[in-house]
Computed example of a mutant assay.
Amino acid sequence: MKITAGTLPLLTLTLALATAASAQSSSSLEVTVNTGAALSSAATRGISAPAPTSSKQEKQATSKTSTPAPNRGALASRAGRPQEPQAAPMTVTVRPGKVVFDSVAIRTARAATSKMLSTATRGQTLAILSEMDDLYGVLMVNNTIGWVDKSAVQLLDYNTEVTLEAPKEQPRSAASGLAERGGLDEKQRQVLREAFSYMGAPYVWAGNSRSGLDCSAFVKNVFSTVGVSLPRHSGDQITQGRKITDTGELVAGDRLYFAMKGGGTITHTGIYIGEGFFIHASSNHKCVDVDPLFKTYVNKLVAIRRD
């Protein structure tokens, strides 16, 4: 019996989110790409973008013959925090449970109105970590806990001990050193430091916290730390700040807006960090990461804003 520990729900979620679309406001092309030698050379020298962080965790599972009930109330002191998935211990005893509904939502908190993490489908085996009232706490692949209705899950008659790989410390990338270089004012440094503190945070469409967020939430949250209040959606964020119309004028801390599907509809955003690179919550990397601007992304750049 293979316990998925939330792997399939998260994969299902990723596929579902890939087909979702949010309403974005239109914007005409307003950026002139400066191809001068100085910027072109800066865009290609010296700094390599870090490799994307994998969202998969290695798992080991061994079976026991005892049949105790799930770990009732073990996480009760943390289970009630709204809107945030709970961090699971590194070694846990779980109870396998089969999904008996065609589909059932796994949510971030116990409230029925809380945000949905993913959807589990009939026959899927979940790792039940705890129970609370009419809900089971499900161990997810990223070491967090989601909540599912008890009625949708049939417990199996044994427990399994699961040892999860401890999170590895995010190595300091060469790009993150840009926050400490000379020539930046304190506001720019603060923006870059905050942005790099999100490195490796999972990309989650419509997410809004370090446990998972999308591109516009990332930009909004970073700039809130320097007193800049931005709208939630990228298409609305360009109403704030000073327009910059030439990429040759880019400075660290400028906000970048892209029409990834062509036309003028903004569908992505990030923050310029200097030396031809920008940081963003990337659906391609599935996390917050750094990419070169002047390779492919610049062709989709439609707006720049400075606060």
Rank of each mutant, 00 (worst) to 15 (best):
V219L: 04
D133Q: 15
P9E: 02
L156I: 10
N142Y: 10
A201G: 05
R306D: 08
V92T: 12
Q124E: 15
Y203F: 10
I47P: 03
T32L: 10
I304E: 05
D254P: 07
K286T: 04
A166I: 07
K59S: 09
A166H: 06
R110N: 12
V153W: 07
Y136Q: 02
A201F: 01
A179W: 00
V138M: 10
A38C: 00
R189I: 02
R242T: 12
A74Q: 14
L213H: 00
I304H: 05
G207P: 03
N34E: 08
E58H: 11
A43P: 02
S27Y: 06
A38Y: 00
T144A: 05
A112Y: 07
K98G: 05
G183P: 07
A105K: 12
E58P: 12
E30V: 08
A120N: 01
A43N: 08
D254A: 08
D214Y: 09
V204Q: 05
K243G: 04
E249G: 03
S28K: 06
Y136T: 01
K187F: 04
D134V: 10
S28W: 05
R78Q: 14
A111L: 11
D246E: 05
E161I: 14
V162E: 01
V219G: 02
G276I: 02
D157L: 06
S283P: 09
R306S: 09
A174W: 03
G262W: 05
A49C: 13
